[in-house]
Design a protein around this nucleic acid. Structure first.
Lengths: 230, 230
DNA sequence: GGCTTGCAGATTGTACATAATCTGTCAACG
DNA sequence: CGTTGACAGATTATGTACAATCTGCAAGCC
């Protein structure tokens, strides 16, 4: 009669390593761009590639479908989600609501230690530059995780991660435009300043602009890619 | 060499009827409360109940896991997501961002015909009352669909449906508190008025309060249920 | 009483059968 | 001669049956 659920384990920690589940490995391959958007996902092929049989692959694909990474059409198989400009716009419209909101929360509780960590990360970002897109992406993720990681809203965090991964798959292997590089650095610096001043609304505004700029840059990239015939 | 994806079919229309897929039937059973929160989901049992074998069930459960309706622990099976107050708070925090935003958009483009439809629905809601919770839930869904259905952001719409379904599973079979019934009617009426005046910010404010009230009511219900020993 | 052990039930992975879709060829037709 | 249409074979998705692995529990033993 007790029914105390033994602590909902949320989801086991993600380790993209070797002993990972099929689900994690496929998801990682999508996020890292090794499986291109719109690429066909044949169960038998994947099963062979990952050294297992088809059933685990099918289940992993179904889960990824539920999360939006994969699109399955009945009797015609699965594909990596094709990311057109409409999809990018949709995702970023949501982010433009979520991120300012969570930024407001963070600015309220930010400690000096948080600010120091932000500055250290920002310095490393500026030192590293944007040439190594993978490395930059990691640092940028760390930077924004300082803002959101401790938030209580697990559901929103999942959503943020999903959005970030999905868009990262698109941008990770393409070049940054110069204007975007400069904007990122400027916005990050302004953001740190706003946090230091505990300027809640100012920080929220900057983050909103940050997301909007990211969307414009992505849309530009998609157009360019389409103009180049793919 | 063409690669024009043949119109991404999004997802086939949902028909909870008899010829539905296993996924739709299980999801519907969760949403309608026939499968209670935290209920164990044994693959063989479900396979027998739906007249199929275990594999389709497993895949359906994986998809539902990806969408957040089901929680799967390795080697220990699947359960319907348990909805504690933290989860409700998380979901509604997101809704309090999304719904005002989409309401703003709707107020800008609302036609006289839209307003007439809202009034008709509101009248039916008031006539029907809150005793038949299932019937009320349907009408309330229709009411809010007038606001959101035509929005371009398919991704956000999916999210809204998921959130609504998940919370609906919790509230559909419990009684409304009197204060909540009165608040709903008042807020709906005020909302229609704001739309008629094309008062964008006013409508957004009302919707935000509407969602917040819904959250308070749900939290109250959960507490009461817990106090009653389940 | 606490620990071990064995067993039933459930999940997870493999192999196979069936049904649907896609590809390429070839004949009929404009 | 080029295009369209249908057909056959190959490929792939989907469903079923089965084997192996793990968990939970309860009886038995120290």
């Amino acid at each position: 009669m007790d029914q105390t659920a033994p602590a909902p384990p949320v989801e086991p920690a993600r380790r993209p390593g070797a002993g990972a589940t099929i689900y994690e490995r496929i998801r990682d391959d999508i996020v890292q761009g090794r499986l291109a958007p719109n690429a066909r996902l044949k169960t038998s092929e994947l099963a062979h590639a990952y050294g297992t049989s088809t059933n685990p692959v099918r289940e992993a694909l179904q889960q990824l479908r539920g999360e939006g990474f994969v699109v399955i059409t009945p009797n015609r198989g699965a594909r990596v989600r094709a990311m057109d400009d409409a999809f990018v716009r949709d995702v970023l419209e949501i982010e433009m609501l979520l991120e300012p909101h969570f930024t407001r929360w963070f600015v309220e509780i930010a400690t000096d230690e948080d600010i120091a960590r932000l500055e250290a990360l920002q310095q490393r970002i500026e030192e590293t530059g944007f040439d190594d897109t993978v490395r930059y992406s990691e640092l940028d993720t760390q930077f924004h995780r300082v803002f959101y990681d401790r938030h209580y809203n697990q559901h929103a965090l999942d959503l943020w991660w999903r959005h970030r991964d999905v868009l990262g798959a698109l941008s990770r292997h393409t070049r940054f435009a110069r204007w975007r590089e400069e904007a990122i650095i400027g916005e990050h610096r302004a953001l740190i300043e706003a946090v230091r001043r505990h300027d809640v609304e100012g920080a929220a505004k900057i983050v909103e602009a940050h997301v909007r700029g990211s969307g414009q840059h992505l849309a530009e990239q998609i157009r360019a890619r389409r103009a180049a015939g793919r």
